[in-house]
Amino acid sequence: MGGLLGELGKKLAERWLSLLVLPGALYLAVVAAARTLGHTHPFDMSRLTGRITAWANAPAAATVGGQVVLLAAVLAGAAAIGLVAQALGSLAERLHLAADWRTWPTWGRRLSNRITTRRQDRWRTAAEVWHHRREDAAVALTRSIRTDPADRHAARAAMTRISPEQPDRPTWSGDRIHAAAVRLERDYHLDLAALWPHLWLILPETTRTEITTARQALTRATALTAWALLYLPLALWWWPAAVITATLALISRHRTCTAADTYATLLEAAARLHARDVADHLGLDSTGPLTHESGGALALHVTPSPPPPPEESPAIRQADRASSSPEGR
């Protein structure tokens, strides 16, 4: 038992160090460099090393007690910055995925609706081009003519760059995850949101590990947006911080899109492969491939029934009787 607790403590310490302390310590180092160098000497290493030497020769840093206090202060500050970054990362993830944008404050809903509408218009145009080229290729194939698929593939890529399915959210990453639910509904009448809790409980351990890893990668990718926001105010003192902010934002966007694509692909694949296993556990007839009928039946079984209508209170019943009586009329 002691060995298990020790190993658990070691893993927690490693995660604390890698997720909070190290990025926070790097941020504090950049803050110190920004305050020391400023806009006028952005890359003056001699100025920076001179200031570090002066700090190292300070009386407080010359004693063991002072060094311990200084180290503790740096670790505490780095951990605090890491916690702030994690909180901002949760907000950044919510903005990247935008699953609940219709419940955002009024100004956020209006902006998101405007962006979503514009993306829908662009997607329809690109989808029409792709479908026309598919139809032209099919007509040519009936005449024993094989057309060059490059134009057709380019049209599909142009459509997918906007959204894999008709946009429903203001961001590509959000629409990529939403596309998994749209495809399952269209192909098998499955409600992924209702099916997923039941599916997760029976998935093989290796599959759950893959999905968990992909989900954690998505969280880490969106966390880079939080660090970009934290580095942005430093540009007021040191202009290279703006370059750091832009770089982190671009990396975060690329990694978020990649991680969202991987995560959505795994969600959809797991549902297609194991939906019949859920049907077996529920005692449904799941022989043969999954169809609209079997998928719809499964969706009905995993979707909770709605609450019954509330009973009328005595005061309402009395008011109804009074209004229906001759005196009430």
Rank of each mutant, 00 (worst) to 15 (best):
G2Y: 04
E7D: 12
K10F: 14
L12D: 08
V21L: 10
L22Y: 13
L26T: 12
Y27P: 01
A34T: 10
R35K: 14
T36K: 10
S46N: 07
N57K: 15
A58E: 06
Q67K: 12
A80C: 03
L83R: 15
Q86N: 08
Q86H: 06
Q86I: 13
L88V: 01
L91G: 11
E93N: 12
L95G: 08
L95P: 05
R110W: 15
T116W: 07
T117S: 05
R122C: 06
W123D: 04
W123H: 13
H132L: 09
R133G: 08
D136I: 08
I145N: 08
D148M: 00
R156E: 10
A158T: 00
I162F: 07
P167H: 14
D168P: 07
W172G: 14
D175C: 05
A180W: 02
A181Y: 00
L184Y: 02
R186C: 13
L192Y: 01
W200K: 08
L201F: 02
I202Q: 07
I202M: 11
T206E: 02
L224I: 04
W238F: 02
W239P: 12
W239A: 13
T256V: 15
C257I: 12
D261Y: 13
Y263V: 14
T265A: 08
T265K: 05
T265H: 14
L273Q: 13
A279E: 03
D280S: 03
L282T: 00
L282I: 03
P289R: 06
E293T: 11
G296Y: 09
L298M: 11
V302Q: 01
P307C: 06
S313I: 03
P314V: 01
A319F: 01
A319N: 03
A322F: 10
P326E: 10
